[in-house]
Each structure stands twice: as C-alpha cells, then as structure tokens.
Simulated scan of single mutants.
Amino acid sequence: MLDYSEKGIMDGLVAAHSFDAIFYILSQTASQENVYLAIKGLRRTVDIANVSRGVIDQALQIKWPDFEDAIQ
C-alpha cells in the first residue's frame, strides 16, 4: 500500500498517533538519526488522517477485532 501511495496511485493516510508508536518501535533497533529519516520518509509518503471524536465513535460502533485498525 505504501508503494501505491508513493506512486500516487492512491492516497495513503496514517493517524497522527501512529507516528509516535512507529518511532518507538524503530528506535528499539535503529539509531535515532535513521529513525528520524524513516519517519520523515513515511511522512512524505502519507498524509495525516484526522482522528476526531466522530472517528473514535465510529470505530467503537463497528467493533472491529483490532481497535487501532478501526481508527485508521
């Protein structure tokens, strides 16, 4: 999917709260410099999805097994 976003075939969206989780996970095995480069690359590839009260309410209503995926 990121490949499609990079090529402009589709819009990639990531919730803002995912960036800190990704940063944390990457920082467990990579240098801070490389983690920042990776996060900057991701940010160039995707846009930030708005996560509002309405999005959370919808995620609660659909009851997906993975709540984080429902928010995304």
Rank of each mutant, 00 (worst) to 15 (best):
I48P: 00
A49C: 14
I22K: 03
S27M: 06
F67R: 04
D57K: 07
D69F: 07
G41Q: 14
K7L: 14
A59E: 08
G54H: 12
K63F: 01
A30Y: 11
S31K: 06
A49Q: 04
S27P: 06
L42W: 06
A15F: 05
Q58F: 09
A30Q: 13
R44D: 11
A49N: 04
A49W: 04
G12W: 00
S5K: 01
T29Y: 07
D20V: 10
K7C: 08
Y36R: 04
A21Q: 08
Y4A: 09
M1V: 07
Q32T: 15
I9K: 10
D47W: 02
S31W: 05
S18L: 02
Q32Y: 08
N34L: 06
I48K: 08
D11G: 08
I22R: 01
P65F: 07
D66F: 06
Q58E: 05
I39N: 00
V51M: 04
S27Y: 05
I39T: 04
A59H: 09
K40R: 15
H17M: 13
L60I: 07
I39D: 00
A70W: 03
F67N: 09
D69M: 15
I71D: 00
K40Q: 12
V35Y: 00
I9C: 01
S31Q: 12
I22M: 10
S18N: 06
S52G: 06
L37T: 01
I22Y: 00
A16F: 12
K7W: 10
R53S: 07
A49R: 02
K63P: 00
A70K: 01
F67V: 08
D47H: 08
P65V: 03
V35N: 11
K40F: 05
R44M: 04
A16Q: 13
S18Y: 02
D11H: 12
A70S: 14
A38P: 00
D11T: 15
G12D: 02
V46E: 07
K40T: 15
H17A: 14
Q58A: 13
L60A: 10
M1D: 13
I48N: 08
I48G: 09
V35K: 04
Y4V: 11
N50A: 14
A21D: 13
D47Q: 13
Q28Y: 13
Y36L: 08
Y36E: 10
P65D: 03
W64L: 14
Y24Q: 09
S52Y: 02
Y36P: 00
V46W: 03
E68V: 15
F19K: 02
M1K: 09
D69N: 09
R53A: 05
I25L: 11
A70G: 07
S5W: 06
S52R: 06
Q61P: 00
L60W: 04
D3T: 14
A30L: 14
V55P: 00
Q32L: 10
D3V: 15
R44S: 12
L26W: 11
S31E: 13
A49H: 01
W64K: 05
E6R: 15
I39C: 02
L2T: 12
I39Q: 00
A16I: 13
T29R: 14
A15N: 06
A21L: 10
V46C: 03
G12I: 05
S31Y: 09
K63C: 03
I39V: 15
F67P: 01
A16G: 14
F19Q: 01
E6K: 15
F19L: 13
H17G: 08
V51H: 07
V55D: 00
A21N: 10
L37H: 03
G12V: 11
L26H: 10
A38Y: 01
Q58I: 06
I56T: 11
D69H: 02
A70Q: 07
G12N: 02
